[in-house]
Simulated assay, not measured.
Amino acid sequence: MLFIMLGFSVLFDCIKAPGLGIATRYMFTMAIGRFLRTITFIATILPSARPWCAAARYQIPQHPHPWAQKYYVPYASDSNAIRRVITHDMAYAAVQAYPDEYRPDWGRMSFLVDILRPIPGEGPSWYHLLKKASGGCNDLMYSGHMLVAVLTAMAWTEAYGGWISVVIWLLILHSTQREIRERHHYSVDCIVAIYVGVLLWRMTGFIWSV
């Protein structure tokens, strides 16, 4: 809503006409932030803030993965046995009788079967399975919602300033504590998002002026 209101700033001589500069800067800065977030998302696979997330979103088979059946389960109670398997790169214990792994035909995306381990009845495709899960359970370093909120606050502050900007930043702090309190993010996710948002907005200031 704040960003939409910024579009009318030209009418009040708060930003330069036609007002596309701040919008372009906003979207460009957000694109950089999203790109950096993707990198950190891949690089920081941390435990979920909600330990029950995986069990609630994914129906994982009770039996271990075939790789674990062969190379881990028979030797889990003996560290020397695990060391021997690693050294010789060969399984030497008999594998128990586990149920066969369900392997749907996902075409070029069939490599995801070993990662997602679907069960019968979860959907016709890998996309349906991921969409049903509504995202992953790993840490989201940093918060995308907070990044958007901070960029909006930075744009508003630069275009208008004044006491209303203080109110907007108080709303940012309220959103931060709510994200943490409702366990959508770790505290570090929100704090880093604020730092990154402010830093990126300052860095792109030399390209577009308000």
Rank of each mutant, 00 (worst) to 15 (best):
I86F: 00
I180G: 05
L130G: 07
W156Y: 09
L2P: 07
W52S: 15
E182W: 15
D114S: 13
L171W: 08
P18L: 06
M1R: 09
R117L: 10
Y186R: 15
P124R: 04
K132R: 14
M1W: 02
W163C: 09
Y102V: 11
D114I: 10
A81S: 02
A76H: 02
M146T: 10
K132Y: 10
I164M: 03
T157Y: 02
K132A: 15
M154N: 04
E179H: 10
T38P: 01
W52N: 14
A81E: 04
R37E: 13
I22S: 02
L151A: 11
Q69H: 05
L200I: 01
M203T: 09
E179A: 12
K70Y: 01
S209V: 08
M30F: 05
S77D: 02
M146G: 05
A68S: 14
S9W: 01
A94F: 00
R202V: 06
I32C: 05
R83D: 04
L200K: 00
I191V: 11
C137S: 14
Y102M: 11
I45A: 12
A68H: 06
L2D: 10
L20Q: 03
E122D: 08
A54S: 15
P66Y: 06
L129C: 08
L36V: 11
F8R: 11
L129Q: 15
I168K: 01
T24P: 03
G7K: 06
I172C: 12
G161N: 03
F111H: 13
Y127V: 14
T176N: 08
L147F: 14
D13L: 05
A17W: 08
Y75W: 04
R178M: 13
H128G: 02
S187F: 12
I119Q: 15
R50I: 14
L36E: 04
E122V: 04
P51W: 09
S143R: 01
P120T: 10
L170F: 10
A149H: 01
D114R: 14
M90Y: 08
A54Y: 15
E158L: 13
S125P: 03
K70C: 10
S165I: 12
W52R: 11
E182T: 15
P99T: 13
R108Y: 07
S79G: 03
V113K: 02
M146Y: 07
R37H: 11
W126D: 13
D89F: 10
I172Q: 01
R183S: 12
L20W: 02
C137L: 10
A68T: 05
V167P: 00
V85C: 02
V150A: 04
V188K: 13
A193M: 08
A23S: 09
L46N: 08
M5H: 05
V10Y: 03
P47G: 14
V167G: 08
E158V: 11
I45H: 06
D89T: 13
M27W: 03
H184Q: 15
V113I: 03
D189I: 06
G107M: 01
P120R: 05
A159W: 00
M109I: 06
M90C: 07
A94L: 11
V188A: 14
H88E: 12
T40D: 06
G197K: 03
R183V: 09
Y142A: 15
I86M: 05
Y142G: 05
H65P: 12
P120F: 04
L171Y: 07
A31I: 09
A133Q: 07
A133P: 10
C53N: 07
M27T: 13
S48T: 12
A149N: 04
A97K: 12
R178V: 14
L46Y: 06
L11K: 06
L6K: 00
T40Q: 08
V192Y: 02
I15G: 03
